[in-house]
């Protein structure tokens, strides 16, 4: 066991990391970041996606002991209800979720894509979301939402970057 520090959505947090423990388990059990969802534990579904030092990763495939001192962004760290992140606004307006279990991971994969490629093509959006499974929506509205978020961002002359990252 080792005490590690993580900057989660801009705030430094600490907790006990154990050998073999994944970042997903650490976030959920040590830090109670339950907005990071456990869908499969083996990198198939993408529900546990977080942005780790600027990259979208399946947090179930990263060991907690590897990431001491890192910055993590979760779905809770993007925007506020009054001032939502363009992706959050677009997902709500488009209706790009049903049960909402895959949604945090889906939004974070999309954010990581838009952070590096603010004007993605349709094919690039698809590739960016291809690691995230959804059983409810059939994906169509999710694609539409990401496209809409790109539009919002370009209209606002802003980026989809959030303040914590």
């Amino acid at each position: 066991m080792k005490k590690i520090r993580l900057q989660v959505n801009g705030t430094w947090r600490s907790g006990w990391a154990a050998p073999g423990q994944t970042l997903l388990e650490f976030l959920r059990t040590e830090l109670d970041c339950t907005e990071v969802k456990h869908g499969c534990g083996k990198g198939d579904c993408g529900a546990c996606t977080v942005i780790l030092n600027g990259m979208a990763v399946d947090s179930c495939l990263v060991l907690s002991l590897q990431v001491d001192g890192s910055a993590v962004v979760t779905a809770k760290g993007l925007g506020t209800k009054e001032n939502p992140h363009p992706l959050q606004k677009a997902f709500i307006e488009t209706g790009a979720f049903q049960c909402g279990f895959c949604t945090p991971g889906m939004i974070l994969s999309a954010k990581a894509l838009l952070d590096t490629n603010p004007q993605p093509t349709k094919a690039e959006i698809r590739r960016g979301l291809s690691g995230n499974l959804c059983r409810c929506t059939g994906y169509r509205k999710i694609e539409e939402a990401v496209t809409a978020a790109v539009d919002y961002s370009s209209k606002n002359h802003g980026s989809t970057e959030d303040s914590t990252h």
């Binding site: 339950t34 809770k76 959050q88 997902f91 209706g95 979720f97 909402g100």
Partner: peptide, 23 residues
Amino acid sequence: KRVPEIHGWAKVTGQATFTDDLR
């Protein structure tokens, strides 16, 4: 009408509580 989902904010932030999220 195309009314947005009422639990939308909870879902886009991951704050919709599923059973495994209970503490």
